[in-house]
Design a protein around this nucleic acid. Structure first.
Lengths: 243, 243
DNA sequence: GCATGTGAATGTGTTCACAGCA
DNA sequence: TGCTGTGAACACATTCACATGC
């Protein structure tokens, strides 16, 4: 619910860029970097759309929200687009990130190259487990979660990443919010409640698998009894074997 | 583009359950398990919605797509809902998963408890690096990617997880598709092209951070120069601060 | 001539508000 | 009475198709 509020809130803060567009800008940016690395100076909406895996009308509309700088009859200047999108996403500054939870997943995240390469700097690794505190990891030392206020004071952290077990996540979240963190990326499989001014995004691996499971079982049902297609009249009378 | 096609395709296969609903079912399921573990027998849409972090109208509409079994004036039977949703998601069977890429992230994924606890079984760990082949990891031995056909033959794998570097991902994807895998979860930061009958979901950590960066920089702009609101052209002139 | 940028049309998702039923 | 289930209204997103301007 504060989830919803936060989303709605964010929406009104947006300079009017739709959420769906914002979510795609990083994809365009990645595609543009690839093109730039290959030495390409200019790109059409058609080509960029293909590389980014969307259709060209969508791409053009997305870019138009940035007040984009394409040239009719030609296309977009790759370097200009990179700048425009980076600017829009706020990537002209390096954001400091605090990573909380140095377990299985936290280890991996600490070493994830994609963080640094996209302008994010891991400012601290934190954990509640005293056994883990002091451990060296990818050139950083794990500190105790109680040091969070000090960490934030040192290098104004504005993004927190939660990679703890679910039962610790809300507590960690509250601590992050308490020290002024206003953006949180949550890997713990649970819903976090936060004030309206805090944005939370969540990544849940098992949810993604369950969504695939849904589609997979649809596909399986189709191939094993293709006649199921025909009784798809309007509602259900579906396959199943009741409980 | 095949991304779009695949989505549209999936949509028509859906028994009519909207994609947005499918994406939320796992969240409801998790919430229900929590309630069930706490011994709760019955739940209202209001309560379940709160636990799941959505609003109750949305929850009811979502459940109505399953032909749901609530009782007016009372609520939903927790156990019945768990069964109904599990059924809808195809979680009544254990899906076998092949995990390709045992680097930083792959290690973490291999040990991720959430996989097993939600009915997914890691059938194999695969990697292209000969140095990694043979390594023991969470009770499994890493095998070479060339053994993929054998792996699939052994225990019909239908879901593949790609945790390789971006430059290897498309090749791995093609191999997975070639051996009959029709659902892929991609952690590599790149767009995969696949035939229409294959579903791909992607998780990109740095994209999530970039989206947070966008919102974070909006917020920063607001607090540092609140007058920025007024030069915002036309519509917004919204909540400067609290309600 | 050709690709952008955009109104208009369509499709999807969310929310409201209440009828209908235990 | 109280809560579900849902039509109708609204909001958001995607796609189409073409006028616009280099």
């Amino acid at each position: 619910m504060s989830d919803e509020r936060a989303a709605a809130n964010a929406r009104t803060r947006n300079r009017g860029i739709p959420d769906a567009t914002v979510a795609r800008l990083p994809i365009y940016l990645r595609a543009l970097h690839t093109l730039a690395d290959a030495g390409q100076r200019t790109v059409s909406s058609e080509e960029l759309a293909t590389v980014a895996g969307v259709n060209s009308a969508k791409l053009r509309k997305d870019l138009s929200h940035l007040g984009s700088y394409g040239t009719r009859g030609v296309g977009y200047d790759v370097a200009v687009l990179v700048d425009t999108i980076s600017q829009a996403l706020g990537l002209t500054q390096r954001w400091a990130v605090a990573l909380v939870g140095v377990g299985n997943l936290g280890h991996a995240l600490a070493g994830y190259a994609g963080f640094a390469s996209r302008g994010f700097r891991i400012a601290a690794l934190l954990d509640a487990d005293p056994d883990r505190v002091g451990e060296r990891l990818h050139g950083m030392v794990v500190r105790h979660i109680d040091e969070l206020p000090a960490v934030v004071a040192e290098g104004s952290v504005s993004i927190g990443v939660i990679a703890t077990p679910a039962n610790a996540a809300q507590d960690v979240c509250d601590r992050l919010v308490a020290v002024g963190v206003t953006s949180i990326l949550n890997f713990a499989p649970c819903v976090l409640s936060v004030p309206d001014n805090v944005d939370v995004r969540k990544v849940d691996l098992s949810i993604e698998l369950q969504i695939l499971s849904f589609h997979e079982s649809r596909k399986a049902a189709l191939t094993s009894l293709p006649s199921a297609l025909s009784d798809d009249g309007e509602d259900e009378y579906d396959e199943a074997v009741g409980p």
